[in-house]
Design a protein around this nucleic acid. Structure first.
Lengths: 121, 121
DNA sequence: CTCTTAATTGCAACTTAGTCGCAAAAATTT
DNA sequence: AAATTTTTGCGACTAAGTTGCAATTAAGAG
């Protein structure tokens, strides 16, 4: 299965915490915070944060800080922008690819802030 | 002077804390966190946060959360993007105007994350 | 399969940005 | 100048995230 292979490739040990975490990220369409994960499975926050940091070091996950003082994590797939709603604090992935460049800078992520579709009605 | 006029217009009371705060924001080229302001003047954090919130309500200031868990504030001028460096955590304003739109969404701010000019050398 | 070793987990204590209640101080109204 | 209202500053508090440490678990060697 892909989780086992991924962990193997990165020379990490496969623990149940890691399997559960990756399982969740593989099945989520949005970036998730600790709270989001916590609402799905029981996991100590130290375990969560230590594992997601390790996954980030290994480029399995990426993350960004949202508007609500929480950090959101997701699988490192193709580069794409994120939208953060200032009303509901919801976080979404924007599928349409972005192109933006700036001399001398490396742009790795784009976060758009404003009002999402739902809250705009 | 413009600070007095601005405060007047927004029906706020002009206190020395507010004058000092606005003075700093008027002379800064970058968004500032409480720590940044604190390094320039002595001010209680409750006073800082209560005033910047009030200024935000009155659309005098705008703010965003950076990568370092700190919130950065700046005068509400023309819409422009911000760049946040993941190496030095520096925050900069991008002068070039952006144009990006997304059906059904209101985009109010754009934050680019990556590596800044300095750290890229 | 069992032993050994090294990594991981879970808990509690801690850190840090930001918030809140309240009494003292400063502004504005009368 | 007195009365009323708002703001300030302090300390206590909150919530996300980090760290130290003892107990547990994974994985390789025999």
């Amino acid at each position: 299965m892909k989780i086992e292979k991924l962990i193997e490739e990165k020379n990490l040990k496969l623990t149940s915490a890691r399997r559960e975490l990756l399982e969740i990220f593989f099945h989520s369409a949005k970036p998730l915070s600790f709270e989001d994960v916590r609402s799905r499975i029981k996991m100590d926050k130290a375990t969560f944060y230590r594992n997601v940091s390790k996954f980030e070091e290994q480029a399995i996950l990426g993350s960004f800080e949202s508007n609500d003082k929480k950090r959101y994590y997701e699988l490192n797939t193709l580069p794409h922008a994120h939208f953060v709603c200032k009303i509901c604090n919801g976080v979404e992935c924007i599928k349409e690819p972005f192109s933006m460049s700036l001399d001398g800078y490396v742009i790795e992520d784009i976060i758009l802030k404003g009002v999402c579709k739902q809250c705009n009605k």
